[in-house]
């Protein structure tokens, strides 16, 4: 067997805080499987991205097959199966933002961070070598009135101009 095929994984388990949150979650639904999305969000917050070990752990917790977890993870764009940067920068590029020059925003970020834009199946492409940033395009973030917008991790930044972008990035 070639070396790439052998994956040495550190096992995953929720830390105490997340375990408590998970225990609260599970009681909300008549079936455990329904807690899938919130559980995966929790796990991703802890592990950074969804590794096979995370999937296995989540599957055990929710009493479903690992395949089912994988099925869900591959469907939703917010779950990453590869490492991402410390700051994930999501640039909206749907029509209302496009009418307000989101392309300029994207180009500015590309030059500033000196990176390409991530593809959904190749996040490394948009990640800076130092692992600090991942740049990706996303669809409408429901803030078209303050377009163009980006999200840096959980925070929305509005009405962007090159100067504003510089300020945001430099302050990270």
């Amino acid at each position: 067997m070639s070396d790439e095929l052998i994956q040495i994984e550190t096992p995953f388990a929720f830390n105490e805080e997340n375990q408590r949150e998970f225990d609260a979650l599970i009681g909300r639904y008549p079936v455990k499987e329904a807690a899938m999305l919130p559980t995966l969000h929790l796990a991703q917050r802890q592990a950074g991205y969804i590794t096979p070990a995370v999937m296995k752990y989540v599957a055990e917790q929710l009493e479903v097959s690992v395949m089912k977890v994988k099925d869900v993870v591959t469907f939703y764009p917010m779950f990453f199966e590869e490492p991402v940067g410390e700051y994930v920068i999501r640039v909206c590029h749907t029509l209302p933002c496009a009418l307000r020059d989101c392309k300029g925003v994207l180009d500015h970020l590309k030059t500033k961070l000196d990176t390409d834009v991530a593809a959904e199946t190749n996040l490394a492409k948009g990640t800076t070598p130092d692992g600090k940033f991942t740049l990706m395009k996303v669809e409408c973030l429901a803030s078209c009135d303050v377009a163009p917008v980006i999200m840096v991790n959980d925070d929305l930044h509005k009405n962007l101009t090159p100067e504003k972008i510089d300020e945001i990035i430099d302050n990270l």
């Binding site: 807690a35 999305l37 099925d71 869900v72």
Partner: peptide, 27 residues
């Protein structure tokens, strides 16, 4: 009342897609 987070798929706004997603499946 419980809040349930989505994960970035537009189609989960369609009501039956939303229901599937809420049940912990692909939307």
């Amino acid at each position: 009342i419980y809040t349930h987070p989505g994960a970035g798929a537009y189609i989960c706004g369609e009501e039956t897609g939303l229901i599937e997603s809420l049940e912990g499946k692909r939307g």
